[in-house]
Structure formats: structure tokens, C-alpha cells
Design a protein around this nucleic acid. Sequence first.
DNA 1: ACTATCTATTACATATTTTGAAATTATCTA
DNA 2: TAGATAATTTCAAAATATGTAATAGATAGT
Lengths: 300, 300
Amino acid sequence: MDKFDAMRIFVEVAEANSFVAASRKLDLSAPAVTRAIARLEKVLGVQLFNRTTRHIRLTDTGARFFDDAKRILEDLEQAEAMANGSYIQPKGELTITAPVLFGQMHITPILTEYLQANPAVTANALFFDRISNLIDEGMDIAIRIGPLKDSSLYATRVGHVQRIVCASPEYLKEYGTPEHPSELTDHRIIQATTVEPSTSWRFSSPKGKVSVKVTPRMNCCQNGAAICAASHGFGITRLMSYQVGEELKAGVLQRILKDFEMDPLPVNIVYLGGQKANAKIRSFIDLAVERLRANPFIDH
Amino acid sequence: MDKFDAMRIFVEVAEANSFVAASRKLDLSAPAVTRAIARLEKVLGVQLFNRTTRHIRLTDTGARFFDDAKRILEDLEQAEAMANGSYIQPKGELTITAPVLFGQMHITPILTEYLQANPAVTANALFFDRISNLIDEGMDIAIRIGPLKDSSLYATRVGHVQRIVCASPEYLKEYGTPEHPSELTDHRIIQATTVEPSTSWRFSSPKGKVSVKVTPRMNCCQNGAAICAASHGFGITRLMSYQVGEELKAGVLQRILKDFEMDPLPVNIVYLGGQKANAKIRSFIDLAVERLRANPFIDH
DNA sequence: ACTATCTATTACATATTTTGAAATTATCTA
DNA sequence: TAGATAATTTCAAAATATGTAATAGATAGT
């Protein structure tokens, strides 16, 4: 028996929710379908369908295997097409995660471009500021900012960003521009909790590390709110450089204490299994690397 | 031909760089190997190996297909292992949220049982009475009481509970047992704010909905305090049926106005991404569903 | 309650494919 | 040039797959 054929039959049956319907669609006899499924179940040692003589229904494991089978068949189809040189469009579901603002600002445009070019792919963009487990949560690709820990993953570095301190020119004009981190204690501070959860802001200088305890007048659990408040001249905040690229360029915000910034944080595209990633994932990564490397708000 | 077998043979041949060596390793005859590869090449319409009668060497497309084939076979192996359940040993961190009292009374015992059975899992139980976003807060599983809104989540219904009105027999003896919601205005009311945040208590009767404005003598933001106060005969309170199962059974509290109770509220176990739910999550859900369905304080 | 109908499954004879031993061909090494 | 060995082909036996027809079970409509 060809296992892949059996899987194709299985997928068809599961979608049609009927053996006969699937047999008609696949141009097979009904017994052929029954037998294919029966064998698959025997090989797996698991019931895939609950059946009566008139109805069938996927079991829980069946439903899980259905997803797997579908993905694997798609993957196989791609691989075969690749081998014989006939290009076929990637299809299926692509799940990607990134920090909230990074995702919104820098990944979304890439993703829409990718989706436009690959109409058969549906995307799942999960932007949040906590680190998730790629495998557990079924992610295909993650954007990570900062040093990497999990070494079982493959990563491509696309540049680096920095924690920067900034305020609006109006604010600085009125209250003065700090020349040393220690002066921050006298200023109105806007705290973006996702960037810098602690109220000790750490800096580095030629003379070594400096830690300054700030007392925020405003706490934002949303970075966007901190940007907004700082732009309106309320005070000084600390953010990621990629979050305020536009504002810095437009002069709405001004970068200060540049000489005391900590080491830059790498930006990585992280994914499972190196060259083993399939066409869908590889093609997205290729595009993303290219676009992110060309992104003026990410340093290289 | 079984394409799956053919691919396995192909991978083996490519790794051994020899047909005979692969045949020995796979316990097959040499012709079987030759034929399998020949067929695979025919199906793909592509040369996979350059061969002389004495040597073989992967072609470029062969090398690429080798990577793909290996990945697909691994993926399939995983999927099969997943299906027949042989691989799963849950491990990692499991984060679960539930309403405070529901968690304390009904989830904690299940969780401890689960942790005992799965020593490699650590749990994070977050019990609070506000609804949190599963994704944002990194929850794996949530227990939700009431109708579900977020349809992007998967849910398994385990039963239903009700808002019930109750008081101690002593109190009822002294002050009388209300026969209609409207009589509540004359009674001492203990308000459990998390169950019924408004002071309008809504009921349903054969004649339609009834809303009664109560004036609580005591406001509890902790359900446990309301239970305690009612048990001591202070007054009438309104709680969830699962919160006072023991008290009702022991006769410490007595359920009143039963004919005017609103429709029952479903109890659901909610989790992300069905097929992607991993062993850790699935196994907990399996256990929790079983235990909760057997729970006498939850109706079915 | 009964029957017609449709679905899944089994039985069985037939057709197809797969198999390995042996023979063949080609290349490398000594 | 001969000997050795790898890949391939040949061929008959064995294994497998297939479709038709028959069976069994469930449902819907009368």
C-alpha cells in the first residue's frame, strides 16, 4: 500500500465526511477507500474514524492526524514540484510571532507583500511581547529581539536595535537636555513597561555600567502610548529604536544620552530546523531577511 | 509502488552513497533498491543519481530532494507517533486560569493529580474573577463560566452551573422564606460582587423575566466571605451553584427561589488552537474533562 | 412499525505488482 | 588484461490490490 495515497484518501474522506463520497471524488471503488483507511488505522494502531454503517466521524486523534497529513501532503507536493522543476505556489498556513510593535510596524508590510505573492497561503500573525515556545505553540517563524537562548532553533540575524532614551525637542528646550544618566532623576519620566519593566534604567559608559533609579510619572503598558506621550512633550521615555524610527526622523522625538546606550540587541528571525524548513517557510524568510536588512530603522 | 518506502530507500541510498550498502542496511535485495529509485525518478521525471555501474552520486536536484524527503519523513514519523500516542511525555510549564473559587475548589485537586502523574510538568495556576486574554497572558488553558465569546478558541463543555439564591435554615426560620423574588427587598442581602456585580438581581419565571433591585447590607468582593456570612445566618446571598455545593449538601445553606433561577451557565474548558494543543495541554484537558464531568456539584 | 434506501464492510475471483535468484553489463583495480 | 564488484535486467513465483457482488446495519419517510 502506498502510505501517501492512503493519507490522501484519508484527507478526502475526512473532508467529505463519507467513504462513498470520497470514493466518487477520487474515482475509486468504495471498498478501496474502506480498505485504505482500515490499513492506515492498522499501521497507526489507532482508530481514525468512529463509524456506524451509515455515518462516520473523525476521532480526536483522527482530527489531529488530519491536520498533520494535510500539511505533510502539501509539503510533499511542493518537494516533488521543486524536484522536477515545475514551480507550484506555496500553500497552507503560515504562523508567525513577533513583539507587538515590531510586528505591526515591520512585519505586517512584509507579510502582506508575501501573501499577495502567494495567494494560496493564509497567515496567522501573533504579535505579543512575551516569548513563546515555537514548538509548543505551533509557530513556524518568530522574530526575536535580544540574545537567543534556545539553541535547538535556527536563526538568521537581520540587524540590531537599541534601547534608546528620547523626548520631544519642546520638552528638552523647556527642561534642558540631560547630559548624563544621573540627571534623569530630575526629569518627568514615561515608563514603557514592556521595554523596561524595572524602574532601574541601566546604561553603559566608558567608565563602566551605570544604573539609574527613575520614578516614572506615567506608566504605560502599551508602547504606543509612551511614544504618544513623549511626542506630545510630556517627558522622557525609553524605547526600542525600531519603535520610534519615524518619530526620530521627523524630529518629533529626539534621541538623547546616545553615548550611554547599552550594547545593541540583535534582531533574529528564528525558525525550526535549518535547511529542513519547507518551501513556504523558506520563501517567507528569504523575503523577510531581504526587507528587514533594507529597513532603515534597523541597524546593520 | 509505495512512495513512502521509496523515499526511505532513497534517503538511505543517498546517505550510504551506494545501492548495495543501502540494500544490506535495509535488508532488501539489490534489485529492489535499484527499482525503487528508478521508479521514484520516473514519478518525479528527474534523475536523482548520476550512476556508473560502479558508482553513484546525487544530482543537484537529488540533493535538494534529499533534504525535503528527510524532512517529510521525519514529519510523518512524528505525526504517526503523535497519533498512536507513543511519544508523548508531557513536560514543560502549564498555565491555567479559572475563576477564584472554581479554581480553588474544583481545579486544584485535578491539577495536583495531574502533576503527580506528570512529574516533568510544572504548573502555574492563576485564579481570578476577571476574564483574561488567553494569548496575551500566555495561558494554556482557561475555565470559563458563561457563554463564550471568543470563537477563535477551542472549547469543551463540561457541564453547567447556575446562579442560585440561598441562606441558612436558621435565617429563613427567623425571617421567613421568600416565595417570590420581589420579597427579597424586605430581607438582609449579602452581595457577592464577583458573582452579581450589579444590585439588580435578575430572575426568570414562567411569566417572563423579573428584575429586583436589592439593597445589600453587606458587600463582599470575595465570594468566600459571602458564603461564610450566609452560613452564619446573616442573610440571603446569591452565588454560583458550584461555590456552595458542600454547604447545600450539608444543609448549612438552603437553596431558595429555585423556580425563578435564570438559565444555567455553561462551564467550558477553553484552549488555543485545537490541533496544535500539545501533549501537555491535551492530557490535562482529558483529565479535567473526565473529573469535572464526574463532579457532583456541576450539573450535566 | 415497516420498508426503501443508502452506507460501510466482507468475500472472492481476477488482475496487477512485487520479489529475489540468477544472469548481464559496465566500471574500476591490480 | 583479468578479477572483482556495483548496478541493472530477466523471469517465474509469490504477494498484493482491485472491482463486482453480496452482506449487514442504520436512517428517513410513509
